[in-house]
Computed example of a mutant assay.
Amino acid sequence: MYEVIRRTEPKPGASRTVLFQGNEHGSQVSFFLVDNDPGQGPGLHVHPYTETWVVRSGEAEFTVGREKTRATAGDIVVGAANIPHKFVNVGTGRLEIVCIHANDHVVQEFLEEANG
């Protein structure tokens, strides 16, 4: 068995980020397909499982715990479970990133507001 989920264009003014909740489709993983403008990114938050980020285009600055790093197209960053983290688009163009959650649904607690 398989399922194909077709991409749809967001409505004008709506977020370009897409959320896939694995449990709604018989999958063991969940993810966000993020498409952010410069300066945008989620606020500091935490998950009870690892999160893996795959940067598709642009440049992101990640804060994981007390450490910061930058990643560009093709880079993969992995954050440990229960460690507060966030990222922000520090480039001049769009940031496209896949945020893979090692769980069949997204569980996150926000600790601060989003950027942008």
Rank of each mutant, 00 (worst) to 15 (best):
D35Q: 06
Y2D: 13
G13A: 01
L33F: 13
I83T: 15
K86G: 09
D37T: 05
A71M: 11
G65N: 07
E112I: 06
V46W: 06
Q108V: 09
T8K: 09
G91E: 10
D37F: 08
G43E: 10
C99E: 13
V54Q: 13
G39F: 04
V18C: 00
E67P: 13
A102W: 04
A73T: 05
R16T: 08
G26R: 00
V98W: 08
T92D: 15
S27T: 05
G41F: 00
T52P: 08
H47S: 07
T52R: 06
V4P: 03
F32M: 05
Y2Q: 11
L111G: 07
I76G: 04
G58T: 02
R94K: 02
I76R: 10
F62E: 09
L95Y: 03
E113G: 11
G93F: 03
S57G: 10
R70V: 12
F20D: 02
V90D: 09
A81Y: 05
Q28R: 11
G116I: 12
E113T: 08
E51L: 13
L95V: 05
E24A: 10
G39P: 00
T8Q: 11
P84L: 14
G74N: 12
T69S: 12
E109G: 05
V78F: 00
D37P: 00
E113Q: 13
T8P: 01
Q21R: 06
A80S: 14
G74I: 14
L19F: 11
S15M: 03
F110P: 03
V78E: 04
P12H: 04
T17K: 02
T50G: 12
I5R: 00
A80I: 04
R70Q: 14
V98E: 04
G22Q: 03
A60C: 03
G13F: 07
T72S: 14
R66K: 15
M1N: 05
S15C: 04
A81M: 10
P12N: 02
N23M: 05
P38H: 08
R6Y: 11
V29C: 04
S57Q: 13
N23R: 10
R56Y: 12
F87H: 11
E3R: 14
A73E: 07
N115T: 02
F87I: 04
V90Y: 02
D35E: 08
E113V: 12
L19I: 07
T63F: 00
T17N: 01
Q40M: 06
G116E: 13
F32Y: 15
G65M: 06
N89W: 09
V54A: 11
V46N: 06
V54S: 06
Q40C: 05
G79H: 05
R6S: 12
H85I: 14
H85Y: 09
T92G: 12
D104E: 10
I76F: 10
Q21M: 03
P10M: 00
T92L: 10
S57E: 14
L111P: 01
T52Y: 04
G91K: 00
H25C: 02
H101P: 03
F32H: 10
E67S: 15
Y2G: 07
L44I: 08
G93E: 08
